[in-house]
């Protein structure tokens, strides 16, 4: 067992662990905002709806180059978020139904595009949807001068993670205020719509960058699970962010460990680890836990 844990930090799994942590961290930070904004499912929606964006980007650029892919995905993420608002405002369809309509339709269009142009679009559908972190190419490495920064996917994901953290630090105040009381934010002159789309843009970017590693559905687990767990454990948003990040690291570590032991999907393992921590918090959180409260009452 000790040997296996050491393996996790070794040359092969070390990068996978680092990659997983970069993905989970970005997700956990953004997910914390989604959870308190009651928008958890927008992650699910965007992660499916970017498929046509990827397909179109691929058709135009003819390759899986990172920049067109990212642009296509961000554009599609914004479109999704806009369409959901549009449909729910211009008709009496509720927001959750609007979400379901928009993302499933876009997803279907994506699948059709890919199969129509199957010979031109070399997108591995299974990969986009399931993802497998152990398949990410570890070679070549990215060098900054002589400095070895690690494999390309890792460098990109770390970059995304850095941008996410930076934006959140810069706009922390505004993000929290618009989440808590958008009316007050509007009356104080905070650009509420801009902040909303900024967040959506970050979520889309993160989701697309994470596709290869974890896939469209399990990225939702990474967005929600650490944030929801942290939400049960603290009363301050700043602490919630830190705790969510901590759980992101723990989930990745345990998820990877058990996935290797069981010879199973790593992303799945991370999702299950996240759920396990959530259940623990749900039952035993000092202030919120089901069991703790029952004991207090007894």
């Amino acid at each position: 067992m000790i040997q296996e844990i050491q393996n996790l930090f070794g040359p092969v799994y070390g990068w996978i662990l680092a990659m997983g942590i970069a993905v989970s961290l970005s997700c956990a930070v953004l997910g914390s905002f989604l959870v308190v904004r009651k928008m958890s499912l927008i992650g699910d929606a965007i992660s499916h709806a970017v498929l046509p964006g990827l397909a179109i980007a691929f058709l135009f650029s003819g390759s899986r180059a990172t920049i067109p892919m990212l642009l296509g995905a961000i554009a599609m993420g914004m479109t999704t978020s806009f369409l959901i608002e549009f449909v729910s405002q211009k008709s009496f369809i509720k927001k959750d139904a609007a979400t379901g309509i928009v993302f499933t339709s876009l997803f279907a269009i994506g699948v059709i595009l890919i199969s129509l142009f199957a010979d031109k679009i070399d997108l591995d559908q299974e990969c986009v949807l399931y993802g497998e972190i152990t398949f990410i190419p570890l070679e070549p490495h990215f060098y900054l001068g002589n400095l070895d920064l690690g494999p390309y996917p890792f460098v990109i994901m770390s970059g995304v993670c850095l941008v996410v953290v930076l934006v959140v630090i810069l706009f922390y105040k505004e993000l929290v205020l618009t989440s808590f009381d958008p009316a007050l934010a509007l009356s104080l002159g905070v650009p509420v719509t801009f902040i909303h789309y900024l967040l959506m843009g970050l979520v889309s970017t993160t989701i697309v960058s994470a596709f290869e590693s974890v896939g469209a559905i399990l990225v939702v687990a990474m967005l929600i699970a650490p944030a929801a767990t942290a939400y049960l454990l603290t009363n301050r948003f700043s602490k919630m962010l830190l705790l969510a990040s901590l759980f992101a690291v723990l989930n990745t570590f345990f998820g990877l460990y058990f996935a290797i032991r069981l010879d199973a999907s790593v992303a799945g393992g991370i999702a299950v680890a996240g759920f396990a921590f959530f259940l623990l918090a749900f039952l035993f959180s000092p202030s919120q836990g089901l069991v703790s409260r029952a004991i207090k009452r007894a």
């Binding site: 699910d44 559905i217 939702v220 967005l223 929600i224 699970a225 991370i270 999702a271 299950v272």
Partner: peptide, 11 residues
């Protein structure tokens, strides 16, 4: 919903 959806699917 998101929690159950994604973690059951993960399992």
């Amino acid at each position: 919903l998101g929690m159950i959806l994604s973690s059951f699917f993960g399992l």
